[in-house]
Structure formats: C-alpha cells, structure tokens
Computed example of a mutant assay.
Amino acid sequence: MDISLNKSTKNTLFQKIEQVRRRQGKVQDTHITLAHGSGGKAMRDLIDDIFVSSFDNPILSQLEDQASLNLSNLLQQGDRLAFTTDSYVVDPLFFPGSDIGELAVNGTINDLAVSGAKPLYLTCSVILEEGLPVEILRRVAKSMKAAANKAGVQIVTGDTKVVHRGAADKLFINTAGIGVILAGVSISAHNIQPGDVVIINGELGNHGTAILIARGELALETDIESDCQPLHNLVETILKVCPQVHAMRDATRGGLATVLNEFALSSNVGIRINEESIPVREEVQGVCEILGLDPLYLANEGKLVVVVARENAEAVLSAMKSHPAGKDACIIGEVIASPPGVVFLKTAFGTERIVDMLVGEQLPRIC
C-alpha cells in the first residue's frame, strides 16, 4: 500500500523518530546479560543509563569512538603529556574505606601525579560477568564519578564488554589517563644520587590489610580502612617548594620495599631505611605478626615515596605535612653509594638486613 505524506507531516514524523532515537535509554534488566555486550539496544541502554548519566561531560556526551581533546588548552598547562593505563581486579569490589570504582580513578590519577603531571582526562573500560547485578555496576559508576569530581578530572571515553558467567569475577575495570607535565619538572628513578633523602607521606599497609579483612577469610575485626586517595594535589604542594624532586612513586602492589628496590636498581645506588622511622599502625603490625606478613610489602593506595636532595628535605617535609594527605609524612632513610642496587633496613635492634624485591605475592588481587 502506498502512503503519501506531505512535507510538513514528514518533518514532524522524522522529528519524533529522532527524539525517540536520542532519548536516553534505561536498563530494564536487574542483572547483566550477554545482550548488554552485543552492540545493540540493550548495550546502548546500559551505556546511557549507567555511564553517560554518571560521567556526563561535554566531551563524553558526543558519544564518538574516541575523545577529541583541545591541544592548545593542554599546551597552556605544560610542555609534555603524561599517559598511563592500569587495570583493577580487586576482590571484594567494596571494602572498608573505598571500592573498585574509586580505586580505579585514584590509582590512575596517582600514576600520572608521580611524574609531576596534572591529571586531566581518564578513560573507563569495563569487563562485566554475565549475572552481575546492575545495581552493583551503578554504584561503581557513581563512585567513579564522585572520585573524578573530587579530583577535578573528566572521564571522557570508554568501552563495555560482557563475558559468559564464570569467565570473569564480577567486574574488571581498565582505565587510562592523560595529564600535562609542568615545564621544568623532570621526575625519574634514574635521577637518584647518593646523599638523597627518602620521605613517605604516612602509614603503610592500610589498604592491603583492609582488603584482607574484608574478604572474611579470617576471624579478625579491625576498624582499618583503605588509604585510597588522590595524591596530585599533594604532589603539586611538593613541587611548589621543590621543583627539583629527583624521584617519586606511589607504593601500590609490592609496597614500599618494591618501590625502593626499583629506585636502587634504576639509579645503581643503595638505599638504607630505618625501621623505627617507618609509620605502621599497631593493628596492621598485629595482623602482619599473626599471618607472617611484612608491612613493607603490603599494598597502599594513597602512599607516596619521594626522594629529594638532602638540602631540600626539610622544606619538602614541611610542605607535605601542611597537606591533609601528607600530615603524617616523615623521613625514613637515605641513599648511599654502595653496594649498588641493594636496600638495607636498620632494625629496631640495631642490626641491618637486606630488604629484597618481593618474591611471589603476599596478597593477590588487592588492586
């Protein structure tokens, strides 16, 4: 049957169709299904309802296959780009003090920050297991948005994949981040020199201990929370008083011990730290003694290791203490010329022992 429409009617019809097509979809299912990764309407509804509505910003709202960033705006903030990526597979997804969403945002921000970069843009790609409750995904997305807002960054593009039940463990997140490094700042583990001072911004092992307790495999109760936090503002505070920071790194997997070993190997120097100067909560120390763990290797998600020339150490320490994320900062050791590539710990008994690189994994899936 041939139906002829006048021009006005056609325009009205096309406008209504376009309005329907542009209307933000809503997830109808209570759990993730394979259809949510199929590329069809169910996937579009999931993206609209969970991610676009949560991460809403002018760049993301274009819904292109990539985010277009203004280069002139970037060049006004620095002279180099910092680019990083990380994946998060933490178990459980929610734990005291944080969750996988906030962890993904802050972890990527911190990887940028330790280069001296100002974090600006993040991506968010998720791998979802069939059967994951949609409400859990919604909570994670809102947590990511809150963390991004707090840090002043935008989540501008992403991707969604769904795998069969049992092919993943609920939810994995991959993030990439772009930041701009300030002119005149050159932070690298290769810059470390004998005589330098090692500083950290607070207590070690809180994140790893919080994850361990949250898994419920041990009959232990504590009020320890993850130290998950963004560190870029603390780094900015440090660089204002000392743009010549030699090295900086966040102590995540492998903890402080791993970072120091990486520093020693990169610059072919030795490092000596003082056990009595290293801040560890009594509860964390107690858990470690019960389970035979070492707090030097426990993961952190808000701890920064800074190496500076000795003449700048007090100024940097004072600046760190003036910031909430560095109020418990302290000097824990020094860089020595030899033996190169070795980290020593001066114990509370006055003896010394070698702190080697972690062999194996004390606690898997902590970030």
Rank of each mutant, 00 (worst) to 15 (best):
L231V: 13
I136C: 04
V307H: 03
E311H: 10
A315P: 05
V163D: 04
E275Q: 13
G25L: 10
P279I: 07
M43W: 07
E225H: 15
Q229S: 13
M248T: 02
S277A: 15
H232Q: 13
Q19M: 11
R22L: 15
L63Q: 11
P324G: 11
S226D: 12
S72F: 11
V180P: 01
E236N: 11
C124F: 07
G302D: 11
K142R: 10
L103P: 01
V343D: 03
K150W: 06
S322G: 04
R165C: 08
S53C: 09
N174L: 07
K346Q: 15
G302W: 02
G286L: 14
A189H: 05
V197L: 06
K16M: 00
Q19D: 13
P230S: 15
L234F: 04
A82R: 02
V185A: 03
V241E: 13
G97E: 12
M1E: 13
V126N: 01
E203D: 14
R249G: 02
I192R: 03
A251C: 14
A319T: 07
V114Y: 05
L69G: 07
H36W: 09
N233L: 15
L93A: 08
G205L: 10
A151N: 09
A167F: 10
N274G: 05
G292L: 12
A104P: 02
L120G: 02
L256Y: 02
N261K: 05
T175A: 06
L260C: 07
V355S: 04
G97V: 09
V156I: 07
S98W: 09
E135P: 02
T258Y: 09
V185P: 02
E314H: 06
I192D: 00
E236L: 08
D356V: 11
Q244N: 15
I50L: 13
V359S: 12
L293I: 05
V308K: 00
Q154S: 08
N300R: 08
R353G: 02
G116P: 03
K145Q: 12
S68H: 14
V343P: 01
G184Q: 08
P119C: 06
E262A: 07
G286Y: 09
L291R: 12
E102G: 08
L363M: 10
V287D: 06
T84R: 12
L5N: 14
S226P: 07
H31D: 11
Q285I: 14
L93F: 03
L304Y: 05
I336S: 01
A147P: 00
C242W: 03
V89D: 12
S267C: 03
F344N: 08
I109Q: 05
A329C: 06
G116K: 10
V245F: 00
D169T: 08
Q229A: 13
D91P: 04
G270R: 01
I100G: 00
E289A: 14
D48R: 14
K41D: 14
E314P: 00
H164D: 10
G158N: 01
N274Y: 14
K321E: 13
K346G: 11
A82G: 14
S226I: 07
V269N: 00
L75D: 15
L128A: 00
L46C: 10
L317D: 00
L120D: 03
V269F: 01
N191E: 09
K321V: 00
R281V: 08
D227N: 12
R138P: 02
G101M: 05
Q24T: 13
L5S: 10
R365S: 11
E361Y: 00
I354K: 06
E225Q: 15
Q24W: 04
L231Q: 06
